[in-house]
Amino acid sequence: MRLPLALMVTAAAIAVTLTGCTAPSPEPEASAGASSDLVEVSGDFGETPRVDFPTPLTPEATQCSTVIEGDGEHLAAGQQALVGLAVYNGSTGEEIQVVGFGDEDPVPVLVGGGTLSGLSKGLTCASEGSRVAVVVPPADAFGDEGNEQLAIGADDSLVVVFDVHQAFLPKANGAPQLTRDGFPAVVLAPDGRPGITVPDAEPFDTTQVEVLKKGHGQEVESGDEVVVHYTGVLWDDNTVFDSTWQQGGPTSFVVSEESDSQVIPGFSKAIIGQQVGSQVGVVVAPEDGYGDAGTGTIPGGATLFFVIDILGVVGD
């Protein structure tokens, strides 16, 4: 059942007021200590670092030290970032992996989710543009089993150096907007996960887009690679057929009006021209979705509905 317009206006006004309040900066889940302060890191941000430290390093808890200060707030749970990543065995000094520096593309990591606990804690010490050195005890890494493939024993710590090139929003942070009658209702959990109720009515004949939250970030252009959270449901029975929220983290792909698009046309239509921080709802007609053939669990001729959080544009 849809809320009466007066109640929707009141709810939106309250939400706008709350959105305008200054939220406290997230507190890091680790701090500098004797072990992380022993890690010497040299070289320019973005370039492969030179890392030296005495062995073995045996911290009781994950520690992090800032090598290069960044801008903005510390990363928080649910945020995706693009990083350069250098990992070493903290007991032996052996290099494990160095990736995402120099001419290499930075790699995506998620704070929380399936990321190793110690790496997530270390990332909460970082912000966009920063370089941090993190020392992780076994309990926050691979535990008593270690990792035989990486030659990490049960008692081995990890030393990790992060260069945070770009950080993305954990969820849409724009101002709530009113939607037209007949449009699916969306209710958000505290973490931003949408609950969707499709009306018991015939769908629109054509693809229709509504801005649910109005962001104020960069405008998405055709050909951009965007980072998003989304949930998609079938109009006919409200069944969720795909959701990044259920997969544990955001995803990224190219949206385009041309053949280089990595998503269905209706998805691109919903995002192109919108601003980062926005949340959009889009009713995707079959011709802008999977057509008469369908795909997987999506039957032919299906009308779809997506709620999409636009979290950032890669490389900008």
Rank of each mutant, 00 (worst) to 15 (best):
G118K: 04
F241R: 02
V161W: 09
S31C: 07
Q63E: 15
L7G: 03
L119R: 00
G248P: 01
C21P: 04
A302K: 06
T179Y: 11
G312F: 07
K269R: 13
A76V: 03
L212R: 02
V67G: 03
Y290C: 05
P4G: 11
E258T: 14
V240Y: 07
P54V: 07
I271E: 10
V284N: 04
V87M: 10
P176D: 13
L123S: 06
G20N: 15
Q63S: 05
G113Q: 01
G84K: 06
A151D: 12
L3N: 03
F204W: 06
G312L: 06
T48R: 14
K121I: 04
N89Y: 00
A285R: 00
P108M: 12
H216T: 09
G72V: 10
D237Q: 13
V164D: 04
E225M: 10
G223I: 07
A23M: 14
T231H: 08
G84V: 03
P138K: 12
D236H: 15
K213G: 03
D181P: 01
N147P: 00
A34T: 11
V98R: 12
I14E: 15
D200G: 05
P4L: 14
I96F: 01
E47F: 08
T115G: 01
N89K: 00
W245D: 04
V41E: 03
V307T: 09
P49I: 07
A126H: 06
F305P: 01
A13S: 14
T62N: 03
G20T: 14
A23P: 02
T58A: 14
D200C: 05
A15S: 12
Y88T: 02
G215R: 08
R50H: 07
Q80M: 15
C64P: 02
L82N: 00
S35W: 11
I264V: 15
V254A: 08
V41P: 01
T22L: 15
T58I: 09
P54L: 12
